[in-house]
Simulated scan of single mutants.
Amino acid sequence: MENEFRKGTGPRQFRYSELATATDNFSDDKKLGEGGFGSVYRGFLKDLIIEVAIKRVSKGSKQGRKEYASEVRVISRLRHRNLVQIVGWCHTGGELLLVYELMPNSSLDVHLHATDNVLWWTVRHKIVLGIGSALLYLHQDWKECVLHRDIKTSNVMLDASFNAKLGDFGLARLVDHDKGSHTTELAGTLGYMDPECTVTGRASTESDVYSFGVVLLEIACGRRPTAARPDGTLIHLAQRVSELYGQGRILEAADARLDGNFDPQEVERVLVVGLWCTCHDRNLRPSIRQAINVLRLEAPLPERLPPVGHPAGPLPMPDSDTGHSSCTSTAQQLI
Rank of each mutant, 00 (worst) to 15 (best):
S70T: 15
R73N: 11
G60F: 15
R81I: 09
R77T: 08
A69E: 12
K55R: 14
G60L: 07
R56P: 04
R56Y: 13
L78A: 03
L78N: 04
V84T: 10
V72H: 02
S70V: 15
A69P: 00
K62I: 08
N82D: 03
L78F: 11
G64A: 05
R77F: 00
A69C: 10
S70Q: 12
K55Q: 10
S76F: 02
Q63M: 12
V84L: 14
K59S: 14
G64P: 00
E71F: 08
G64Q: 02
N82Q: 05
K66H: 10
L83P: 09
V72K: 03
K59N: 12
H80K: 09
R56M: 12
R77Q: 11
G64E: 01
S58E: 14
I75G: 02
E67F: 02
Y68M: 01
K62E: 12
V57I: 15
I75P: 04
Q63R: 12
R56H: 14
G60M: 06
I75L: 09
R56G: 05
V72M: 13
K55H: 05
R79S: 15
L83H: 08
I75E: 03
Q63W: 06
S61K: 07
R56T: 11
S58I: 02
R79D: 13
R73T: 06
V84D: 09
E71R: 04
V84R: 04
S70D: 00
S70L: 06
R73M: 09
K55C: 09
R73Q: 11
G60W: 15
V72R: 08
E71T: 05
R79Y: 10
